[in-house]
Design a protein around this nucleic acid. Structure first.
Length: 271
DNA sequence: AAGTGGGTCAACCGCGGCCAT
DNA sequence: GATGGCCGCGGTTGACCCACT
């Protein structure tokens, strides 16, 4: 485990990529595709490991990357998605065409986190900071605190637990905050249900999205960020709605956990 | 001009999961 | 079922830049 085995076998370059290396990689992939990443450096004439080549291509050289600063709509969408998915950056990135998970992760850590805190929102739980604090005091060990502890622990085993916990707790918090009075489905199971649905279905929907240039369908109730960046729920949405990239609104195909979300193409082409 | 602190971002690291053998 | 190779993911690091003192 750990560092790729090929890195030990040969003396491979590390660190920043030179323009020459970039050119070699671009030339190779545009001609032959990447195929098996482990064979790319050899075929492209690079002194890098396949992993490094893959990363360079995905995060920097891919021609479909948008680059540039994130729009306010994109930021809002990231916040919404993070509230539901937690730190599943690749899944968040899948809903933002031209953006990489690395880019989104960096934006979150460097900018969005801070902005949320300034607005009085806990970036981990997406709850108002004052609420989180008072709940921590009341319960002694709140869920958000639990997350923070796991996060701080930073142990390898803790990470695995943390990953699943954070996403589900974020979802739970979302439903606790917003859904109890509005949704017809019981909150006790919906958060896990929706999360699992999304995780299992997003790949097919994302695949459809990629091939068709349409956004993917989301198995969630509609989420909106108001001007104060608090989540709210609009339940007056018909079934089979979709992610609208222009309004930073998540639509849902779910009005009941017994109804399977349908994956079909929206009528509005992606921007 | 030099030092410093904070922000940004590309790249690396370590791990889990998948798949072939 | 065990093992090893590979891919993809999320967390972390460190270089670089810029504003400020």
């Amino acid at each position: 485990m750990g560092r790729h085995s090929c890195c030990f076998k040969q003396k491979l370059r590390k660190g920043l990529w030179s323009p020459e290396e970039d050119e070699k990689l671009i030339n190779h992939i545009t001609k032959y595709g990447h195929g098996c990443w482990s064979s790319v450096p050899k075929l492209a004439g690079l002194q890098r490991c396949g992993k490094s080549c893959r990363l360079r291509w995905i995060n920097y050289l891919r021609p479909d990357l948008k680059r540039g600063t994130f729009s306010q709509q994109e930021e809002n969408l990231i916040i919404e998605l993070h509230a539901v998915l937690g730190n599943r950056w690749s899944q968040i990135a899948a809903q933002l065409p031209g953006r990489t998970d690395n880019e989104i992760k960096n934006l979150w850590n460097s900018s969005i986190k801070k902005k949320l805190k300034q607005k009085g929102i806990d970036p981990n739980t997406h709850k108002p900071l004052s609420n989180a604090e008072s709940e921590e005091k009341a319960s002694g060990e709140s869920k958000s605190n639990e997350l923070t502890n796991v996060e701080a622990e930073n142990s390898d085993k803790g990470m695995a637990i943390h990953k699943s916990k954070r996403a589900s707790v974020a979802t739970e918090n979302y439903f606790e905050n917003n859904c109890n009075n509005n949704m017809t489905t019981p909150p006790s199971t919906t958060h896990e249900f929706f999360l699992d649905r999304f995780v299992s279905s997003h790949e097919s929907s994302t695949a459809a999205c990629k091939t068709s240039n349409f956004p993917a369908y989301f198995p969630f109730q509609q989420l909106n960020y108001g001007s104060d960046a608090r989540l709210s729920v609009n339940t007056n949405t018909p079934n089979n709605l979709f992610l609208n990239p222009n309004t930073t609104t998540l639509f849902s195909s779910m009005s009941s956990p017994t109804i399977k979300p349908s994956i079909s193409l929206p009528q509005v082409p992606h921007q």
